[in-house]
Simulated assay, not measured.
Amino acid sequence: MKLIECPRDAMQGLPDFIPTATKTAYLNELLQVGFDTLDFGSFVSPKAIPQLRDTAEVLAGLDLSRSSTKLLAIVANLRGAETAAQHPEISYLGFPLSVSETFQRRNTNQTTAEALTDVAAMHALCERSGKTLVAYLSMGFGNPYGDAWSPEIVTDFTQQLAALGVRIVALSDTIGASTAATITPLFSALIPAFPGIEFGAHLHTTPGSWREKVSAAYVAGCRRFDGAIGGIGGCPMAADELTGNMATENLLDFLAEKGVESGLDLEAFGRAQAMATSVFATH
């Protein structure tokens, strides 16, 4: 089981800037919990995501000496990937490839074809720099724009990623549109069809629907889950009303019910939860 904590996703849409020192202290607390990966920041235009304009400064303040957690940074184009790749502390570069053409334009100002060209270049860059590309299939469970969506379309995108050599693909429920009826068939079809790819679930959800979504992905064989403490955050490019992230504490409850070890230091998690309350309360 791999748990990926996403403070970047929790912070990115907040209107008030969280001071760099506060971000750094919170991330350092999260680094002690034992998450597989920390989605900690993004190298994108500060005009697009002003909240994360200090990612390089935050990175410089992280204490990785006592943590096994790997760092992931989100990038929106090849230039951002080249910047992120210069930092040896970063293990993963994450790129949002949208199943929806409309959202690709809104999110990265590209066509889907242009984005796929970037993905190929980013994967090659990662190979040269000792990093791994994580492709997020945004709007992976449908979209609000009327763009075509079907399991076959998602499979076709995955096939193109596999052909490029991408090894981690996270199906992303960018607006909380997924249900068990869409989650289970997708993972059940994709996981055996692409044995060389590790599939993850980046599920946005309302408080009442989280359990069915996690269960649907888990039953279908997914063992990589993204979450954010408190269920905070969402994609500011997707809608005005943000649908929150999957709450990490809910993921932990689900795993405990299943008798599955999370691998986390629960005391450290409690400290991070307490800090999250103060970090996000005033923003």
Rank of each mutant, 00 (worst) to 15 (best):
D226H: 14
G227I: 08
R106W: 09
L137W: 00
S68P: 02
A60S: 13
A73C: 07
N77S: 04
T102Q: 10
E57A: 13
F157A: 08
A113T: 14
T184I: 09
L164R: 13
Q110R: 15
F35R: 03
I90G: 02
Q104Y: 05
S150W: 09
G94C: 15
A276R: 03
L59V: 01
S178R: 09
S172T: 15
A76M: 09
H123K: 10
Y92S: 01
F43R: 00
H204D: 10
K47L: 13
G41W: 02
A181G: 15
D240Y: 10
V279R: 00
P7G: 02
A180T: 15
S209K: 13
M1D: 00
M246T: 14
A84Q: 03
V33R: 00
I229N: 08
G146Y: 06
N77D: 15
I153F: 10
K258T: 04
D240L: 14
V75Y: 01
A170Y: 14
K131P: 01
R8H: 00
Y218S: 06
T112Q: 14
T111N: 09
G94P: 02
T69D: 05
V166W: 07
N107W: 09
I49V: 15
A60I: 08
A193F: 13
V169K: 03
T282H: 07
E101K: 10
L255D: 14
L72E: 05
A76V: 04
A268Q: 12
F269Y: 04
A238I: 08
A120P: 11
Y136Q: 04
I90W: 02
G233T: 12
V260N: 09
D16E: 10
W149L: 15
G208R: 08
T20K: 00
R167Q: 15
P192H: 10
L266N: 07
W210V: 13
Q51M: 05
Y145K: 11
G230N: 14
S68H: 11
K23Q: 07
D173P: 03
W210K: 09
S209P: 06
E57H: 07
L38F: 11
K258Y: 04
Q12G: 01
A272L: 05
L38Q: 06
T184N: 12
G234S: 10
E29K: 15
A281H: 12
G259F: 04
A56C: 08
T24F: 04
E101G: 03
L252C: 10
G244V: 14
L71G: 00
T282I: 11
D118M: 07
V75I: 15
